[in-house]
């Protein structure tokens, strides 16, 4: 049974094919309206994530399928102490595919060992979130036309931000990608992610200053710098403004810079930038739905002519 737990479970060819399908859905939505007729998606959200859950559910409805499930552990069997394995085993008799979010890292992998149907990891704690990376990749493809020869800036919390780690690993499979890592010392990218990225053959430039490097970037991926990641309040106050994107800091950026953010945003991108044509973060959320549609089709083995 094929499941997607980690973005690297998908080959480059498969990702390219998902992107092709997503682009085709965007251009010809009517063609896909009944693609999943009679199929059911179980959305098992052991912790709430309204954004991701709605994206999966909208994806299934737009394919003509049905959705069942729960949106938090309190309303589920997990509250009564049932294991992930047992829950999934049972649900896999009721549904054709499962999207699962769980606060424990590795829970979707455990589910995939027991399930009779494909599991899509919809986020396991701070660990993996492959469909976020798929959304990021479609955004880059549509905004930049491809993945080669890009200078990608990643800004903010690069230590705990798993979306950043997955994106780096996914992009490092393409050629001539350069990463510019912009973060305070406390939140630098862990070395093992750098090593894993094509066994250390990728070029990384590290800096603490967004202003110093913004003019060189093709993509700027912003992440949230959370207060609780700092040892003391003083450091947080001192640093937080350095990692907030403002119209002022954008002055020297390229005309065709693509600004991304996995959302939800707190204050790391000024609202004043939302109307700038370079702001892609809301489109990114929309593209996430199309990639989830493409992934559901792929895992169900459905091809639309």
């Amino acid at each position: 049974m094929r499941s997607v737990i980690d973005i690297l479970d998908l080959s480059v060819d498969e990702i390219n094919s998902l992107i092709d399908t997503a682009n085709d859905i965007i251009e010809n939505p009517a063609k896909y309206q009944k693609a999943c007729e009679g199929k059911k998606l179980a959305s098992l959200f052991f912790e709430p994530s309204t954004r991701t859950r709605l994206s999966f559910e909208a994806a299934m409805y737009e394919l003509g399928g049905h959705v069942l499930g729960f949106s938090e552990a309190q309303s589920s069997s997990a509250a009564k102490g049932e294991s992930v394995s047992d829950t999934v085993k049972v649900v896999s008799y009721y549904a054709d595919i499962i999207a699962m979010r769980h606060p424990k890292e590795g829970a979707p992998m455990v589910a995939s060992f027991k399930s009779e149907v494909p599991i899509i990891n919809a986020g396991d704690g701070g660990h993996n979130h492959p469909t976020q990376t798929l959304a990021d990749l479609l955004t880059i493809k549509r905004e930049k036309g491809g993945f080669d020869n890009l200078t990608v800036g990643l800004c903010g919390d690069l230590k705990f931000g798993r979306t950043v780690h997955s994106l780096i690993l996914a992009l490092s499979r393409y050629s001539n990608i350069k990463f510019v890592l912009i973060s305070p010392d406390e939140l630098r990218l862990p070395d093992y992610v750098k090593q894993e990225a094509k066994n250390g053959k990728i070029e990384f430039l590290e800096t603490k200053s967004l202003e110093d490097v913004i003019s060189t970037l093709d993509i700027l991926y912003m992440t949230r710098v959370q207060r609780e990641r700092f040892f003391n309040e003083a450091d947080y106050i001192r640093l937080k403004d350095s990692y907030i994107l403002t119209p002022e800091k954008l002055k020297t950026a390229k005309e065709n810079l693509c600004i991304m953010h996995p959302l939800p945003r707190v204050n790391e991108i000024s609202v004043a930038i939302d109307d700038d044509p370079r702001a892609c973060y809301f489109k990114q959320a929309m593209y996430g739905k199309y990639m989830r549609m493409a992934l559901i089709l792929m895992l169900l083995g459905i091809s639309v002519k």
Binding site: S85, H102, K104, E105, G106, D124
Partner: peptide, 13 residues
């Protein structure tokens, strides 16, 4: 040793 790991809650894993 990760307190957020599924091994901490899933029985007999």
């Amino acid at each position: 040793k990760n307190p957020r790991c599924i091994t901490t809650t899933e029985q007999e894993l």
